[in-house]
Design a protein around this nucleic acid. Structure first.
Lengths: 193, 193
DNA sequence: TAAAATCGTTCACTTAAGTGAAGAAATGAT
DNA sequence: ATCATTTCTTCACTTAAGTGAACGATTTTA
């Protein structure tokens, strides 16, 4: 399982024995049960996540309703806004499934980065990449209809539709659960013809 | 005008005389006329932008229609996806107004970063910050209606509504120009009551 | 300055999403 | 195993966005 982290890192930089050990000595790995809440609204956290197995979900509670805005699955990294901004969190993060992930705190990261400048480079590359990728996702969202977004998701992350409850998917697609249900049956009708 | 860049940088790191000169020697600054296209679909570019004055616009052309997805104004940085990914660009970037900006290419950035590790740190901080901020914007977009998005924009970037054509704003809000027009008159009616 | 092109608004109509309610199905708890 | 809760779907109705067209108003360009 720990190899997955090193596989991931190797996409950006190559590590010496020392550097590998520095990471392993930090006791990053956690296994959490389905339903566990990792971060709550209002909380001040310094923790970043990297999902090895399972699925975590980012959601707001507005007018008593859950609004899901992100799912992180295998090999997804997530640093909450509150960590960067040092403000109370605007949202919750919880586990959709039993999940294995790394949890790193920002002070520890800063320490490793200053000890091994290579990590600084990796973090820069990774966040630049994620920024650009997220912008494309945002662009696709803006320029397509709910139905197109659903079909797009079916292409790009077919697993999500299986492993995640419909009503959570709905707000992820920017619509209500009833609309997702209707939209799905509309698509089904079309494909029959 | 060049001071603006150093004001911006000073939010992240402090510079020595040497470092300032390294930047100034790179001949980064450009003034471009309204309507100039900085990047075209299909093009392979290595250029990143930082707007000092004016406004640039990111847009796709799908089915012969322009779909605007971003506006960068004073103090906004933008690195196109194609620069990070080394693929042909999916979108166009052009100037909404006469614009003064810095244009830096990724090779030059890499050189400066390796010469002055401080810059590497700044780039990491900046892209982490933009990533987190953009995620919040995306979340807001997903969880609100076109009307709420418009009112939100009116709060956060009131200048945009003045300086940008309505039909470009419309796709930025994820709707058609006619819908934006209708939505605006609906809001006007409400405020009269 | 005159003609042409672009832009913003309005209208009538169509399509799809929001809402509230109801019921079936699946899930979780005791 | 049963009861309770949650989840998903369906329905009728409301609201708002998409579409195509028309018409000034503005801007561009020749």
């Amino acid at each position: 399982m720990k190899d997955l982290v090193f596989d991931f890192i190797s996409k950006y930089i190559s590590l010496t024995e020392d550097e590998r050990n520095a990471i392993l000595s930090t006791d990053l790995f956690q296994s959490v049960k389905k339903g566990t809440v990792l971060l709550r609204e209002g909380q001040k956290s310094k923790e970043s996540y990297f999902v090895l197995k399972g699925c975590i979900r980012v959601y707001y509670i507005k007018d008593g309703e859950e609004k899901t805005t992100a799912f992180c699955t295998e090999m997804d990294a997530f640093t909450p806004h509150c960590v960067i901004n040092k403000t109370p969190s605007e949202y919750f993060i919880s586990c959709v499934e039993d999940t294995t992930l790394t949890v790193s705190n920002s002070e520890m990261e800063a320490e490793i980065n200053s000890k091994f400048p290579k990590f600084e480079i990796m973090c820069r590359m990774l966040s630049e990449e994620l920024l650009a990728k997220q912008r494309i996702d945002f662009d696709e969202f803006k320029t397509s209809s709910p139905e197109q977004r659903y079909l797009n998701l079916l292409q790009k992350r077919p697993d999500l539709i299986q492993r995640v409850p419909q009503h959570q998917l709905a707000s992820y697609l920017g619509i209500k659960p009833q609309s997702l249900s209707r939209l799905r049956s509309r698509i089904l009708e079309k494909s029959k013809e």
